[in-house]
């Protein structure tokens, strides 16, 4: 999950990253970055659902597993850049911050936001994921065979 925001599909990467942030985190990082441009809503924050799909047998035909709550919004900065956000859960304040970062990443403020919002968030999520993986790894069974001493 080491997103490099300058490589392929950078916008896809930063939006995907922010959608997985813990509640309140994107707002806090954006506030700490001290960037708060004026904007107008293209679509005010709206709560809805997405039908999550799986595949029979993991790889076969798709089926509908169940829904998840999602919040989305779109906004435009005074300078014209458009920001979108789709985030899991019911998080109106969060999507506003995500859409603002998305729009600002298209402006001269991009470098600043990359270092103050996206990279810290990426590192935090990676650390949390690594910790969980390390706990799982500690529960891995080490089989051993008893020496039977037949020779």
């Amino acid at each position: 999950m080491k997103e490099a925001f300058d490589e392929d599909a950078p916008r896809q990467r930063w939006l995907s990253l922010m959608a997985k942030a813990p509640e309140g985190r994107v707002e806090a990082l954006l506030a700490a970055a001290g960037v708060r441009p004026a904007f107008t809503w293209l679509r005010a924050p709206e709560i809805g659902s997405t039908m999550v799909r799986g595949r029979a047998g993991g790889t076969g035909a798709p089926f509908n597993l169940g829904e998840m709550t999602v919040t989305r919004c779109s906004l435009t900065l005074e300078t014209g850049e458009v920001g979108h956000a789709y985030v899991q859960g019911r998080r109106k304040a969060c999507v506003e911050a995500v859409a603002l970062v998305d729009a600002l990443m298209q402006t001269a403020a991009a470098d600043r936001l990359r270092t103050t919002v996206l990279e810290p968030l990426r590192d935090e999520l990676q650390a949390a994921k690594d910790t969980r993986a390390a706990k799982a790894a500690a529960t891995k069974v080490e089989f051993f065979t008893m020496v039977r001493g037949e020779d």
Partner: peptide, 18 residues
């Protein structure tokens, strides 16, 4: 809830397994 859409089928082969 209004339905925004359907996801792509999840890839359980890429699961972060607990």
């Amino acid at each position: 809830l209004p339905r925004f859409g359907a996801s792509q089928p999840v890839d359980t082969g890429a699961m972060a397994c607990d």
